[in-house]
């Protein structure tokens, strides 16, 4: 190991100079060569397909780009157009926020409550119910069954039921009537929502130290609600945070299911979300610059929401 010559100046006594720090850093990197080798294959792919695209997207959002001609820099024009001139975008934002603020918290709470209820059961029954509740989220396009259940003709389950008992004189156009589209999508999204977060919570609940409950009972905890608030929730805060990350991301991107249920484009844009708006401009109209602007706005909004929710969750229990 070589000892570098260091000039003794008052400054370098306090903290190392930049050159020294660089030398240290370089040495540390060389000492950890193996770790970098282990990380490299994944890191290259992750950077290429996740990090670089975010940068490119932000860059393109300031351009006019249609994939045929090279991008032209147009500054903030796309953003101005998006917020001030695009009426459909405002509908999309409204719908996205409605979806996100209803399905996000609802599905998050549902994931927790059902995990908590299941946790009370005996192991065999618990495994069975976990499977039953988790299955919809991994069952691929089975959710399309809901289009049959809510089908607009008399063969739809709900219409068939309503007609038979004479509740309505004629079939209701569930998926074409803007009044019903939103609630139906929310219902279906909730049906699909007991996914990763749900498993995370089940695992978190099983990991809570059971002696804490005994100690709590000694200290005067009287019912399951107090136990939940004072012991269970604080003990599984890390899982709650992780579950929130997953739920928020899902809540903002319900597009796929909205398209499948209500069609694309939907009546009066009732199922238009920011993501379907993005797909419209990116995949249909090839206004890539503008589509990237939408993507960037969505990205920023998602990150801000995540940060706010994380901050808020720290105070729970």
């Amino acid at each position: 190991m070589s000892v570098s010559r260091v000039e003794i100046t008052p400054k370098s006594l306090g903290k190392p100079s930049i050159r020294e720090r660089l030398a240290n850093l370089f040495q540390e990197i060389r000492a950890n060569k193996v770790a970098y080798l282990f990380l490299a294959p994944y890191a290259i792919i992750f950077l290429t397909f996740v990090v670089v695209p975010v940068g490119v997207s932000i860059g393109l959002s300031f351009t006019h780009y249609n994939m045929l001609e090279p991008p032209v820099w147009i500054g903030w024009s796309n953003y101005i157009r998006l917020f001030l001139m695009d009426d459909v975008f405002l509908i999309a934002v409204k719908n996205t926020l409605v979806y996100a603020f209803i399905t996000g918290p609802l599905s998050y709470i549902a994931c927790f409550i059902f995990a908590w209820m299941i946790n009370e059961l005996k192991p065999k029954l618990r495994a069975l119910l976990t499977l039953l509740l988790y299955a919809p989220s991994i069952s691929g396009n089975v959710f399309l069954v809901w289009t049959i259940i809510f089908s607009g003709d008399s063969h739809g389950y709900i219409n068939g039921f309503l007609l038979r008992f004479g509740i309505t004189p004629e079939p209701i156009q569930w998926l074409q009537d803007p009044r019903f589209i939103l609630p139906i999508i929310i219902l279906v999204v909730l049906w699909l929502s007991l996914g990763t977060s749900f498993l995370v919570f089940i695992a978190g609940l099983q990991g809570v130290d059971s002696t804490l409950y005994e100690a709590g009972a000694m200290d005067g905890i009287r019912n399951r609600w107090q136990e939940l608030w004072y012991i269970t929730l604080p003990s599984m805060r890390p899982q709650l945070m992780f579950g929130a990350v997953i739920s928020i991301t899902q809540a903002f991107t319900v597009s796929q299911h909205a398209i499948a249920l209500a069609g694309f484009p939907s009546t009066d844009y009732a199922a238009r979300t920011v993501v379907t708006h993005l797909i419209d401009y990116g995949n249909v109209r090839f206004e890539m610059g503008y589509a990237c602007t939408i993507a960037t706005v969505l990205f920023v909004v998602m990150l801000i929401t995540q940060r706010l929710v994380q901050k808020w969750l720290r105070n729970i229990g």
Binding site: V50, V52, V56, S57, V245, T249, T253, L278, A295
Partner: peptide, 18 residues
């Protein structure tokens, strides 16, 4: 961890370019 916080749709267009 940050990349967990946003959906893949956000990067769909640059991904195609890449």
């Amino acid at each position: 961890v940050i990349s967990l916080m946003f959906a893949p749709q956000v990067t769909a267009i640059p991904n195609y370019l890449i």
